[in-house]
């Protein structure tokens, strides 16, 4: 055995030991003087929160913001255990989550921050469809359609005798929850024989390469891929909020005529933490002040001024709880917020 070899082997073990000691010694020193705002939750809301966090940190050095992406459901789990300060949600809190937060003794302030339109999308070369009604959407997506509604002409007789292939966000996403509730009337109730992906770009790819393809996802993904996809206006057949088929645009989402597929997205804030930590209150205030401009920049639709004012007031008064508990399915955010 060569001596040098033994030497470098010993040196290596010595080095490892030193690194180990340094690290163990270093643990626990940091963390102390640092102010961290912890956010987690929906991937749909993430771009807005990221934009706000970015601007906030340039404006307020000294407060750090971290954002995780565990999905709306995963975010609420952490939030109701008190692990995080804010959770991003692409749908209102569910009764089971309300119970979880009660159990974890977490009181929350519910703040809508922007609108997202769910776009109904087909392949660019699809030349037979120009609009669709909510009833037809239900016929396609309801649980009873599974393995039965397989061709376009089953939906409208003058559509071709061609196979329909469905694409949708994964069943754990807030987007899927929202769509099933708005179209099928029950959260999570849907046929199961469709292509699901948590990554909306996969859905874009799927629909754009399949002539019989159809699907739904957030409007931002359509806007950045409008050269490859065709957007279908939706008719809810309720004339009081806009006659005929309506396409999702900033205007139609904003004035409430693109129904029922425009949804508010939220942040939920831990009330006790806001009251105890001024930097968190600062962050939320900054969020509300800038959400209109920043959400538009990342592809969402700003809340109408009236709702925004209500939201700001809600935060100022630190009103806890959700306006959705026991609310009707088709109630608008504005009405609900005024009510409480």
């Amino acid at each position: 055995m060569d001596k040098n070899n033994l030497k470098s082997f010993k040196a290596l073990s010595f080095l490892l030991a030193i690194i180990a000691m340094t690290l163990v010694g270093g643990t626990g020193i940091a963390e102390a003087g640092r102010k961290i705002v912890k956010i987690d939750g929906s991937s749909t809301v993430f771009p807005v929160t990221e934009a706000v966090a970015e601007e906030f940190q340039t404006a307020h050095r000294g407060t750090m913001v971290t954002i995780g992406v565990s999905g709306t459901g995963g975010g609420f789990k952490k939030f109701c255990r008190g692990d995080i300060d804010i959770t991003n949600a692409s749908r209102p809190i569910k009764p089971t989550e309300i119970a979880q937060c009660k159990k974890g003794n977490v009181q929350y302030i519910e703040l809508p921050i922007a609108y997202d339109g769910l776009a109904i999308i087909v392949n660019k070369s699809n030349d037979w469809i120009d609009s669709i009604t909510v009833k037809e959407l239900k016929k396609i997506w309801e649980p009873a359609a599974q393995r039965k509604i397989l061709k376009w002409n089953q939906i409208r007789p003058n559509w071709p005798d061609k196979a329909i292939h469905l694409f949708a966000p994964g069943v754990s996403s807030g987007t899927f929850d929202y769509f099933t509730k708005a179209i099928n009337g029950e959260e999570g109730a849907s046929r199961g024989d469709f292509t699901a992906s948590e990554d909306d770009n996969v859905l874009v790819q799927g629909i754009s390469s399949d002539k019989g393809g159809m699907g739904f996802f957030g409007l931002a993904y359509y806007e950045h891929n409008s050269d490859k996809l065709k957007l279908i206006p939706v008719d809810d057949e309720i004339d009081s909020n806009g006659k005929g088929p309506i396409a999702p645009t900033v205007a139609s989402v904003n004035d409430g005529t693109y129904q029922p597929l425009s949804r508010p997205i939220f942040i939920y804030v831990d009330k006790a933490k806001v009251e105890a930590r001024p930097e968190l209150a600062n962050f939320i205030q900054f969020f509300l002040d800038n959400t209109a401009a920043l959400s538009e920049e990342v592809g969402y639709i700003p809340l109408p001024a009236a709702i925004h004012t209500l939201t700001v007031e809600r935060f100022k008064a630190r009103i806890e709880g959700t306006v959705y508990e026991g609310a009707k399915q088709d109630a608008s955010v504005e009405d609900l917020m005024r009510l409480k």
Binding site: G26, G28, A30, E31, P47, A53, Q57, D199, N201, G218
Partner: peptide, 27 residues
């Protein structure tokens, strides 16, 4: 999303594969 560098082993972090994963799924 994290805009500061870890200073101790107890700090939160992100890693390259996660950053890539996030970017791939953006519109």
């Amino acid at each position: 999303y994290i805009a500061f560098l870890p200073e101790s082993v107890m700090d939160p972090f992100t890693a390259l594969p996660i950053q890539i994963f996030n970017w791939v799924s953006r519109p």
